[in-house]
Amino acid sequence: MNSFVWSLVGGRVLVAVFTLLVVSFTVFCATAILPGDVAEVLLGQAATPEAVAGLRAAMHLNDPALLRFVRWLAGLASGDLGKSYANNMQVAQLIGPRLLNSLKLAGITTLFSVPIALALGIAAAILRGSVFDRALTFLTIAVISVPEFMVATTAVLLFAVHLKWLPALSFAREATSFWDLLRIYAMPVITLAFVISAQMIRMTRAAMIETLDTPYVEMARLKGASPTRIVLRHALPNALGPIVNAVALSLSYLLGGVIIVETIFNYPGIAKLMVDAVSTRDLPLIQSCAMIFCLVYLLLITVADVIAILSNPRLRR
């Protein structure tokens, strides 16, 4: 690894930090500067002018926006996420267990879908133009083209209504056996897996096809290499970087999917928490959830970029 590569990686990380700053500013603006007086909303029926003025002062709402932004940012950085408007609990306490639940869901989905998606994507690239490839291409386009809730409702119709294998919409909180656990996670995981696998298969296939079309793969063929050898020794090692990049990028689609899936299956994760917070306009909670989502997303795309840099063989050694 040389210093040039590290400077590229360092540059990418700096960009990520800058991005996070812009993102937090945007989130703050959208939730705290635009119309709708929070104090009035909070007080509801009891919103006498004096009470509103008092609460505004107590919440520092009269300070300039920039000052509030800096204060909020400093709070975030030190782990103080503020208090929920709705029930006056610490946001951090509310989020903690929910975040864990969401990470569990995402983790299981990843474990489940990455190997399958990679295998299918690589196979489709190798068998380009075959019936298998075309069917898979159509299927992935179809899954990408439909909303996540349609994948979810179709899964419910299929597995719960017609086959009656799994419970429909209710989320059983008490998992007493492994079998229960499986039943609880099955539906959300199947839905999410479909959504991210479709992306991953397409990107993997594209990355693989790009390397299969290079002159050095043609050269390997002209050296008499077998198809297996061509794929394993020449195409895959060079496609690995782009493929890992594709995996990281596809995982970022988990975020969009998780918002819908947690809502539809009533899963107690952070996305469900946030959607509920939006309907009660619980701004501190929304801000914190939004920042966590953006952080994860940014982390994934930064990791994807860094992998792309590190995997370029021309930059090695």
Binding site: V23, V27, L255, Y297, I301
Partner: peptide
């Protein structure tokens, strides 16, 4: 780099 659904929710 703000996920689209999240952006929508926040706004």
């Amino acid at each position: 780099s703000i996920p689209s659904k999240l952006f929508g929710l926040v706004v």
